[in-house]
């Protein structure tokens, strides 16, 4: 199986560890991983700001770089959701359409396609799980607290395979952290307040780490943790699943 790794622009620049862990984890599980040269962005920053019509060039680049693989994997639920819903190409419409079906967020790929049932990982810490909205409500990585439906969680299932990890319970299991792309600066006051409240929930329950399948939310919460000189850290779920 040959998969291509899509590393969102800000992960590449600021959180190379999350991307490395994704790559190494997949390789450990016997997958051949390529990292296509020349990749840039999923186009979401423009689209969510109302400029989807400007994302054409970005989309074409994406399709050119990512056609022809069995799967495309990314450690970011938000980018994956955006591509699944909005990627299209004028030049290569068929390939564009195909990518929308072949792109997966890491944890859903691990549970749904690779059907991972065991992991050789150990992480002896108290960890709070942040359910990023686009992954959870968009990609349906976990059951949503609003619905009357059976509970499940793909990231949760994987974390339970990790030795010595202790997952903390939260008061609000799936409240948004307030990142929201350009929202984080356009609505600075509300965004920061949401982030503070989210972080406080984890701290109240003794989390040493906050993890999740979306680095952007974690980046936002990390900014708040560090501003408050907290010892609690953020860590991408791939890094936990790939830890020894």
């Amino acid at each position: 199986m040959e998969v291509a790794l899509f590393v969102p622009c800000y992960v590449d620049q600021f959180y190379p560890g999350a991307a490395r862990a994704t790559l190494e984890l997949l390789e450990k599980l016997g997958v051949t991983v390529r990292y296509p040269e020349g990749q840039t962005c999923c186009g979401q920053p423009m689209a969510n700001s109302g400029y989807e019509h400007l994302a054409g060039g970005c989309n074409e680049n994406f399709v050119e770089r990512f056609s022809g693989y069995d799967y495309i994997i990314s450690p970011s639920g938000s980018c994956v959701l955006h591509l699944k819903e909005h990627l299209h190409s004028e030049k290569h419409p068929v390939q564009g359409e195909e990518i929308r079906h072949r792109i997966f967020e890491l944890t859903e790929f691990l549970t749904d396609i690779l059907k991972v049932e065991e992991l050789d990982a150990r992480f002896p810490h108290k960890v709070g799980v942040h359910q990023s909205c686009h992954g959870q409500r968009g990609l349906k990585l976990s059951q949503m607290s609003e619905l009357t439906a059976p509970a499940f969680s793909k990231p949760g299932k994987l974390l339970h395979l990790v030795k010595d990890i202790e997952l903390v319970e939260l008061d609000r299991i799936d409240e948004c952290c307030g990142f929201g792309g350009t929202f984080c600066v356009a609505e600075e006051a509300v965004s920061v307040k949401m982030g503070k409240d989210r972080v406080a929930d984890h701290l109240r329950h003794g989390a040493e780490y906050i993890t999740g399948a979306d680095m952007s939310c974690l980046m936002h919460m990390e900014g708040i943790l560090r501003r408050n000189k907290s010892n609690t850290k953020v860590i991408h779920i791939a890094e936990i699943l790939n830890s020894h």
């Binding site: 590393v7 620049q13 190379p16 350009t182 990390e222 900014g223």
Partner: peptide, 27 residues
């Protein structure tokens, strides 16, 4: 960085620290 585009005085910093730049990017 896309999420902070269009901001001379970056409001990100008002209530949050910037991510610490790593030694090298993933690429």
């Amino acid at each position: 960085a896309p999420f902070t585009v269009n901001n001379g005085l970056n409001p990100w910093y008002k209530g949050r620290e910037m991510p610490a730049p790593p030694k090298e990017s993933f690429s």
